[in-house]
Amino acid sequence: MTAWSGYLDLILQGALVTIKLTLMGSVLALIMAFLAGLGRLSRFFAVRALATVYIEFFRGTSIFVQLFWAYFVLPILGFELTPLQAGVLALGLNVGAYAAEVVRGAVQSIGKEQYEACTALNLGRWQGMRHVILPQAFLVMLPTFCNNAIELLKATSVVSLISLADLTFQAQVVRAQTGNTLVPFATILIIYFVLALLISWGTRRLERRLSRGLDGVRV
């Protein structure tokens, strides 16, 4: 029994790493999503091209390969990264590429009449984007962002391959030491599931908060 509590401790430490990776990766993904998503809508060809290359490249190659590049190849080029940094970088850039298309689609889903009101009120392109289009588009993005964040959470398990001690890594450690597969993997199954539930619960709350008043119901 004491042995199991030690192993559980190990797994909880792994959970912490997974949570950290998910949070930091999501922040990077969010930044990349807005940069590349808005970049794709730019007036300037070079910006559009750059954003498109980024999105296609990171969507079109495996997260596994990207992680190995971040961790094993970048040092050769002179960028030494810790496993955590490499993990955040690969996860953020990968999921950011998917989320960028969400940003673009949401911005384009806002009706022409909103853009025309911006012009008629003489708002600059960025002013209109910042104060009128993006706040409305963000609400459209949220449900898909929720999906992206859950994808990112699940993708964190690949970092165990660069020896970062996340949930999956710790489960394997426990399995190797005890010879028991069921208990550690059932435990992390539940933990992943609970974390995913937390993400979807959180975004749903945010969504409800942000959409207050939009449907005519008094706040």
């Binding site: 009449e113 909103q114 009101a117 008629a120 003489n122 706040p135 409305q136 609400l139 939009l214």
Partner: peptide
């Protein structure tokens, strides 16, 4: 700046 417009469908900012 010299010109303002009111639209058929109001085009208010819903948020």
């Amino acid at each position: 700046q010299k010109i303002g417009m009111v639209f058929q469908l109001f085009n208010l900012f819903p948020h």
